[in-house]
């Protein structure tokens, strides 16, 4: 599985002739086979970072160096915020959507593996309009896993789900991670989710990485433990202090 090193990564958008810096000198190391969560408020640049990692957007400046093979863009899979399933395909067809040039046997084997793993076997012939949001997001995850990416990116994939389904899917994602040991970068705005899933939590604010916090708690994690609560507090502090600092700087700037 591939790791990636980001060096001085910038992304600038141009809006009506005005330049907006979405990413500002990102330096980040994502180790191979690690589970990294990126947390931050809306508009902090976490989705932009993920889109650049997936190849959906070009970086403006900086370097993105994948560890294996060194220097080349690796096979990347992404699970979006919405399932983005093809409405004309069944759950099974959606899951093997990315597979090309494979024999029917390999396609069926791959589909069965992830249909069973994600508990979708019973719904393999259903269309996306017939299944719940949680099932659809599972199918989207299965589609990404069938692609066998070397780096899995997840862009707030559980944010639209209810709390129970979210916790269940968090556990399923963890099970898959522990089973397959793929490198996962998981973006969320939920601090609890970031601590529950990640081995490293990256805190972002205004296009910058403001903190990197290692989570040395064994899986499965107890959300009610003291260490867990302490980590959550630390991340919240990192976000809020940065926000307070920005506000202070802003007001000082105003006085000048």
């Amino acid at each position: 599985m591939a790791g990636v090193r980001l060096q001085d990564l910038d992304k600038v958008y141009s809006l009506n002739g005005r330049e907006i810096k979405a990413l500002n000198g990102i330096n980040l190391e994502i180790a191979a086979q690690s589970f990294v969560t990126i947390v931050g408020q809306s508009g902090c640049g976490k989705t932009t970072l993920l889109r650049i990692l997936s190849g959906l957007e070009e970086k403006t400046a900086g370097a993105m160096i994948f560890s294996d093979p060194p220097g080349a863009q690796v096979r990347t899979g992404i699970v979006f915020q919405e399932p983005r399933l093809m409405p004309w395909l069944t759950v099974q067809q959606n899951m093997v959507f990315s597979l090309r040039g494979c024999t029917k046997g390999i396609i069926a084997k791959q589909a069965n593996k992830y249909l069973n793993l994600l508990g979708l076997k019973e719904f393999q012939d259903a269309y996306p309009g017939q299944i719940s949001g949680g099932m659809a997001q599972r199918a989207a995850l299965g589609r990404t896993l069938c692609f066998e990416p070397r780096l899995i990116l997840m862009d707030e994939p559980l944010s639209a789900l209810d709390a129970f389904t979210r916790r269940k899917l968090q556990q399923e994602i963890l099970d898959i991670y522990l089973l397959e040991k793929q490198t996962i970068v998981f973006v969320t705005h939920d601090v609890d989710e970031a601590v529950y899933l990640g081995q490293k939590v990256v805190v972002m604010d205004k296009g910058k990485v403001v903190d990197e916090i290692s989570v040395n708690l064994p899986y499965p994690r107890d959300p009610y433990s003291r260490d867990y609560a302490r980590l959550k507090e630390r991340i919240l502090d990192a976000i809020l202090q940065k926000e307070a600092g920005t506000r202070q700087n802003g007001s000082q700037g105003g006085k000048k």
Binding site: S54, L56, T76, G77, F80, R84, M86, F97, R100, F147
Partner: peptide
């Protein structure tokens, strides 16, 4: 566009994007 992005992530060619999505 969101569905086309799915194809892009899977490195679909222009032909595949057209016929599959």
């Amino acid at each position: 566009v969101k569905l086309l992005e799915v194809g892009k992530v899977f490195s679909f060619s222009g032909r595949e994007q057209f016929f599959k999505i």
